[in-house]
Amino acid sequence: MAIPAKKPDPDDDAGSSNLKASSLAQDIRTREVERQERSERLVMLLALAADGNHDAFSEFYDLVSPIVFGIARRVLVDRSLAEETLQDVMLELWRQAPRFDQAAGSVTGWVSTIAHRRAVDRVRSEQSHRNRHEAEALKVEIDFDSVAEAIEGDFEMGRLREALTDLPAAQRESILLAYFGGKTYRDVAAELGIAEGTAKTRIRDGLQKLRFALVEVG
């Protein structure tokens, strides 16, 4: 895709523009090199960990634990639950390290999938536990407003927050409830008062739009 030419800046001469463009291109190359190096490092560390190397797993932990903890914190909110989930996930990664297949996807993708699934399982388990043991007055239903408020106030999310904001409201609501609220599509449908099929469609369509904003353009 061709990049539209930037309008001339009267305060900017051609040499300066070229310098900025060159600097930007260099920055992109540098970041891509760093990402690739990090990816290769993770694969190597995981392979060593799969053979029982504790030092390698220690470094692997340092690199991926912010991903796992970040997901757990957003989904579970409660810090102590997020810490417990981080511990569970890291033990699971240690145990499953020999399963990792580089051809099937990236280490980061593998880690984030396991982390989110575990966090969602935990939030549903906590929800079920509370529903069984607490009075109706103490219901802890996660509604769209509380999830949306938390996301909007989370300035660390930067471009992700912007991408979510750019989604049509119907798709954004469904994705926020499912990804950050740990809701099933059935729960999403019930909460938003829509058909279950509509909830599935909104989630899928929203993810496809996010893909363009976060993956393809990225």
Partner: peptide, 25 residues
């Protein structure tokens, strides 16, 4: 679609307390 959730996770990074690593190791 999993590439999307992978990309999302990289905007959610949060350093965990060191005590968790001690426990895991």
């Amino acid at each position: 679609l999993r590439k999307v959730t992978e990309a999302m996770s990289l905007y959610l990074l949060e350093e965990p307390p060191p005590t968790v690593k001690d426990a895991v190791m």
